[in-house]
């Protein structure tokens, strides 16, 4: 019954003396936060140098921002789950489910905002179920959300009968197409979510508890933090954001598609890692993954513009992801 001594928790001699000497290295994660920004700028500079007229045109930068908006919202949710040492593999199919619910509401001629809320609610419920199973039944996040990936995708197909619902709504289309001060509306929405989530993570009680549960669930529990509540909340948020992103995806493509888009999932995990969020939990920023999303979209856009064949694009993106992730690791 006695607690065994844990050598891993013993002090690391020299570590703190070095830290007190070099103030800027006081936080060993400081540089990993900035690496993604450097990488992003590098991508802009490289493509800008190769084809400045096409890549750096306002038209194209606008394209990159439009393309980044929906992934950025999904990435925020993913960041929350990864910060609790979890992962949400169901985001892409929850997005699809949200879109299908939106489509069903739209066919019943409900107002667009009701359709949107319907999609968000469906997403949130799926997320809460994820969180409850993970925390109450103590089943691995990976497994539970993998199951939900399938369940949500299947539910979307069942509810939609496998058929897309065309959604023609000028208001939604305006949101997807238009811009203000050179920045697309979609990006304003995504950025607002990013800023609010940053606030939530670093300036609220919920945020501290989230990071505590991610960093050290046993210590958090010992201090009376409810793991269940935090897990349910983060997966609920992730689902809610996926459900919300569904509305934007509908605005973007003008239809509620019943087939899940797994590219969004892979993109979100890559962006979270590139953004310097620890897969072991407890360590996160919101802006890092956001910049990483811009990076990935700029990369894809730039490769397309300079005419790199699709096959090589897969390889390039993979290399950038792995390279950045290993750089982040080295910096740590």
């Amino acid at each position: 019954m006695d607690t065994k001594s844990n050598p891993g928790s013993a002090s690391k001699p020299g570590a703190d003396s070095k830290l007190s000497f070099k103030q800027r290295l006081r936080d060993p994660y400081f540089w990993s936060d900035w690496l993604v920004v450097v990488a992003f700028l590098l991508v802009i500079v490289v493509f800008g140098a190769i084809n400045p007229s096409a890549f750096l045109s306002i038209y194209n930068l606008n394209n990159i921002l439009v393309a980044s908006a929906i992934p950025a919202i999904i990435v925020v949710g993913q960041t929350f789950t990864v910060a609790t040492a979890g992962i949400d593999l169901s985001v892409s199919s929850i997005l699809t489910l949200g879109a299908v619910i939106f489509g069903i509401c739209f066919t019943k001629e409900l107002p667009v905002w009701v359709c949107m809320l319907g999609g968000m609610l469906a997403g949130m419920i799926a997320g809460i179920i994820n969180g409850l199973i993970i925390s109450v039944r103590k089943i691995n996040d990976f497994i539970v959300t993998l199951g939900m990936l399938s369940i949500a995708a299947g539910t979307a197909l069942v509810l939609s009968n496998g058929r897309p619902v065309q959604i023609i709504n000028s208001g939604l289309a305006n949101v997807a197409i238009n811009e203000k001060f050179g920045v697309p509306y979609l990006m304003y929405i995504a950025f607002a979510i990013v800023v609010f989530s940053h606030f939530l993570l670093f300036h609220t009680r919920f945020g501290v508890h989230l990071l505590a549960v991610g960093g050290d669930p046993d210590s958090a529990r010992a201090m009376g933090v409810s793991i269940v509540r935090i897990k349910v909340a983060v997966y609920g948020i992730s689902g809610l954001l996926a459900g919300f992103a569904a509305t934007l995806a509908i605005a973007r493509i003008g239809a509620a598609e019943p087939a899940a888009n797994t590219a969004i999932l892979l993109n979100s995990v890559a962006a979270v890692v590139l953004g310097g969020v620890s897969l072991f939990g407890g360590r996160a920023t919101i802006f890092g993954p956001f910049v990483a999303t811009l990076l990935l979209q700029a990369l894809s856009n730039g490769l397309t513009i300079i005419g790199v064949a699709s096959y090589y694009q897969y390889i390039s993106v993979g290399i950038v992801v792995i390279l950045s992730a290993s750089l982040v690791r080295n910096v740590r």
């Binding site: 394209n63 439009v66 393309a67 929906i70 995806a249 973007r252 493509i253 598609e257 087939a259 899940a260 888009n261 797994t262 590219a263 969004i264 979209q297 894809s300 856009n301 397309t304």
Partner: peptide, 9 residues
């Protein structure tokens, strides 16, 4: 299946 990604392209 990346419908949005294709639009981005």
């Amino acid at each position: 299946n990346d419908d949005v990604g294709q639009a981005n392209k």
